[in-house]
């Protein structure tokens, strides 16, 4: 084993590049980052950002074009066999055996890794207890939430040191998502390193650190608290009757840098010389919006993402335009 095996990183990625189509836009573009041992690390980004590609390279299922990556100090190309014993992987699509029962699936995955369900039951007990009443049901006949729990159990049953989860909560309702993150938090507390991808920005709060991924690049990486603190953009929440009309008017307002709907309110970022919220408020009154509330707020993770996209807008607008078919 090489010297890097003693490093504190569970995952180390350097200059990783991957393209599926020659001359097309790359899936991963010169990606570098590290995940510390015992960390719960979130890869947050929309569909097409490169999350699955990255996870597949780290789980040794896909080769990068350039760059290096290691898991627990082991190289993803040279040491792929050792890595496969060390990691647990829950793919985005349900990949268990539909025609095996719950108990059979779990036993199968334990056996493949040369262990038994009994030996590592303590790792999954918390989650598997909820599946116990259905232990003889075929996996294909389980509800979505149950499938997800079984997949997590099967990814854990060989006691991996690093767990890779590819969009485990996509399409799952808010309550089940909360429960799932509760489970991940307890696994992290038991010492397992977890790298999890998600398109839901609000899940950033559950991670020790996050990387925001867009177009195969990391556009920001930090703890959520640090990321929010460093986002110094003054943000206002605007609320009133006829929200869609207010949104359209605010977008037409010359003082507006950008404005987006956030639930019952709109989040507004103004130009520095725009006269602040008072001027915006006066403008809305002029446009016939009676009682409009404007107050300063602390930005959330979606504000940060939108702000970053805006800062990069020149570059990204060009890129997006060619991608999206604008002239």
């Amino acid at each position: 084993m090489s010297a890097t095996a003693q490093s504190d990183s569970a995952v180390r990625v350097e200059g990783l590049c991957k393209s599926y189509v020659k001359d097309g836009s790359p899936a991963l573009s010169d990606l570098s980052f590290e995940v510390g041992k015992g960390e719960l690390f979130g890869l947050i980004g929309p569909d097409g950002a490169g999350k699955t590609t990255l996870i597949r390279i780290l789980t040794t299922l896909l080769l990068a074009d350039r760059g290096t990556a290691s898991v627990q100090g082991l190289d993803v190309v040279k040491d792929f066999r050792s890595i496969r014993r060390l990691v647990g992987y829950m793919p985005g699509r349900f990949s268990l055996y539909q025609d095996l029962s719950v108990a059979e699936n779990l036993a199968f995955f334990a056996t493949v890794f040369g262990t038994t369900v009994e030996a590592n039951y303590h790792l999954v007990a918390d989650i598997y207890q909820q599946l116990e009443p259905f232990r003889d049901r075929l996996a294909g006949k389980l509800s979505g939430g149950m499938k997800q729990k079984l997949a997590l159990c099967c990814a854990l049953i060989h006691a991996p040191s690093v767990l890779f989860l590819d969009e485990p909560t996509t399409g799952v309702d808010p309550v089940s998502r909360k429960d799932f993150w509760g489970m991940l938090g307890r696994l992290r507390d038991s010492g397992i390193t977890i790298l999890v991808s998600t398109p839901y920005m609000d899940e950033a709060a559950r991670c020790d650190r996050i990387a925001l991924l867009q177009h195969g690049k990391i556009i920001a990486m930090d703890s959520l608290a640090a990321m929010l603190a460093s986002h110094a953009t003054e943000t206002f929440a605007v609320r009133g009757e006829r929200p869609f009309a207010i949104l359209q008017d605010l977008r037409a307002y010359p003082g507006t840098r950008y404005c987006f709907a956030f639930g019952q309110e709109h989040h507004l970022v103004l130009h520095h010389d725009a006269g602040g919220p008072a001027a915006a408020s006066a403008y809305l009154r002029e446009r016939g919006h009676g009682e409009v509330g404007i107050r300063r707020i602390e930005p959330n993770i979606e504000d940060v993402f939108i702000g970053l996209m805006h800062e990069q807008s020149k570059e990204l607008r060009g890129q997006a335009a060619s991608e999206l078919g604008h002239e």
Partner: peptide
């Protein structure tokens, strides 16, 4: 039926602009 899953916050809101226009 869950029309906006998986996209970024800006794209998600662009979709809602279409919903608002249609409703209007």
């Amino acid at each position: 039926d869950e029309p906006t899953g998986g996209v970024d916050p800006i794209v998600r809101r662009q979709f809602w602009d279409m919903i608002y226009e249609s409703a209007a």
